[in-house]
Amino acid sequence: MLARLVMSGIFAGALAGCVGGILQLYFVQPLLLSAELYESGQIVHFGKSGSTANIAPGIVWGGFNTTRDTLSILFSIAIYCGYGLLLVAAQGLAQGIAPTTTSATIRRGAIWGLAGFFAFHFAPSIGLAPELPGNASAALETRQIWWFATALATALALWLCAFGGRSWHSALGIALILASHIIGAPHSHNFHGTAPPELAALFATRSLGVGCIAWLILGTTSHYFYHRLA
């Protein structure tokens, strides 16, 4: 059973991470590279006249940075493999609570993927928006603690709502989702980000969009592999 869980998680994670990594290079990376120009001071946008819009429409394949971009795809695969393992473990545990008699369906897999996206990408982003290099932010350790706490609380909350079986379980789940946002994410006391807000907004939205697609792929494929390898 261990091999089944690990293999389905890794296979699905490799697929989702690969697609997510390529989408990231096309949609997110140009914004990140532009932000680094502002961070290093090569371009400055503060001032009366503003700055020239400096966003590449998409990555230029001739400009593919072999080491940097390959590492980005590899780490995207690693991160989604980690998520994939968590997702198949959750599906296996759920199978013990509410066994599904039918085989895997795309719809059920997509729901698992969306739940993972909600817990590990969307909910933490409500407090800590995906950040461009040069953004103002609080101490790293406190943000990491808040990030993990929020992701875990949201995952547990979704589990309670889906499999709790009693209405107070759902109420507790909703309270858990709200708790970390009522406590609030740690933020900097000053705004001194170097990148233009237009760039930061686009970056946050695209990060969430690419994450949603990758999680949908992770959910459907992990669900498929988990049942296929049974």
């Binding site: 997110v28 780490f75 995207s76 991160i79 933490p124 995906p130 790293l140």
Partner: peptide, 15 residues
């Protein structure tokens, strides 16, 4: 350094 871009793009706190 190696994971930098992916950490930013995936919404992790990075710096």
């Amino acid at each position: 350094g190696a994971a930098h871009d992916t950490r930013h793009a995936t919404g992790f706190p990075c710096h």
